[in-house]
Design a binder for these strands. Structure first.
Lengths: 221, 221
DNA sequence: GCGGCTTGGTGACATTGTCACCGTCGCAGG
DNA sequence: CCTGCGACGGTGACAATGTCACCAAGCCGC
């Protein structure tokens, strides 16, 4: 059988052949440019998405004007959460933003329902995705409530770096990652710089001592 | 047809008759006394639970020793989250504690899977429950990250009161509700008392001016 | 160059979290 | 009855974080 986008999803590898055929037949490949809003308040996604390429950032905007990043969906993951949520609530507080150019396979809602009904493997995939998201959300609540901001910032810098030595971001964006204020990020970054862990430039942070950051991040992670 | 526990669940009202029969035939009614741990780290529930009577509090214990209440399951709700989570992760960080004597209908995992496969209504029920929990978790993240502690405490007092005029709880327990420290709760309660909104006694809080609390709670909720 | 926007820096202050310690209360065991 | 002991709550000092009001420097289109 030919290579299809299904093969990019580890959790879908064991799908029965008729299910694979249905999925391929009823899915549409869509693309969105960097910066576009995939879904958001008043813009529910009508489809379930399987992300083939790129990264989608899911963040929340509260009435107070504060933003916080909830999680990211990377290639090989799916938006089960959003699919499920649109079933019940369209005053959906979170929005999904393409952080890079994005390609995805879109599955209409009724096909999603059929797949869940017909395929045990697909059910496993869906519930596993739910589980992962929910345990991540639990962990995030714990982190936001109890973790020190310097530890979280160090951790976030390391995660955003993806192993590279510079992170292209602003203090404001880092503040949204943590759900805190820009001033707090600025002060912490100054402290990191004073310790020789990073070097700052306008719109970017260069990591000069990864081990230092890692030690802090591990300290209470 | 006879009245069964299924009728206590609004979301299950429209189940097809064969599905109802299966659910009734394969479920076991279980009871747990107040204070017992329904599930927790190293004690995964093997079954999906439909709560018939009582209240289950789900809370999280972080490594740092900090606790925080995540949500409650009341009669007429189900533990879909826990069911789904045990599929993937048994290093499940949260625990469920019976706040009152509890009765529940337990469904084995494979029956749950069958039901999801066979019944569209059951799927709707399950995904609606997921949606509700997840949007609640999103809301909670927002609250923990951005809401003032006095507003949250006022809100929590009102919620825990269930319309009664006294709340039987300790400062420590209120602190766990909010994920903060006992001292913080003590100070805020003193301020509430100074304003004439509450009267304190050892192990309980009497609400003397509900409107005052409500105004504060609404202020930014 | 000019003007406006984005980015980042800073000090003062308010809020919240942490720590150390104390006193009171209720209760079980002697 | 007395005596510990543990749970409950109060308090002050301090640290960490959030908020506000600014300001300065860089960037970019005109």
């Amino acid at each position: 059988m030919a290579e299809t986008w299904l093969d990019r999803f580890a959790g879908l590898a064991r799908l029965e052949q008729p299910v694979r055929d249905l999925l391929l037949a009823r899915s549409a490949i869509i693309a969105a440019p960097e910066g576009s809003v995939i879904f958001g308040p008043g813009k529910s996604p009508e489809n379930m998405l399987f992300l083939l390429d790129g990264v989608v950032r899911v963040q929340q905007v509260s009435e107070s004007g504060h933003d916080i990043v909830l999680y990211r969906i990377t290639a090989g993951e799916s938006c089960v959460l959003t699919t499920a949520c649109l079933l019940a609530y369209d005053d959906y507080a979170a929005e999904g933003i393409a952080e890079t150019d994005v390609q995805a396979a879109a599955i209409p809602r009724d096909v999603f329902d059929d797949l869940v009904a017909q395929s045990k493997s697909f059910r496993s995939f869906v519930f596993a995705a739910f589980s992962k998201r929910i345990t991540d959300l639990f962990l995030m609540i714990d982190t936001v409530a109890f973790q020190r901001i310097d530890v979280r910032l160090a951790d976030t810098l390391l995660k955003l770096s993806h192993g590279e030595d510079t992170v292209a971001t602003t203090h404001q964006k880092l503040a949204v990652e943590l759900g805190t204020a820009r001033e707090v990020v600025s002060r912490q970054l100054q402290e990191f710089q004073r310790r020789g862990w990073i070097a700052q430039a306008r719109g970017s942070v260069a990591i000069s001592d990864r081990a230092g950051l890692e030690q802090l991040a591990r300290h209470h992670s």
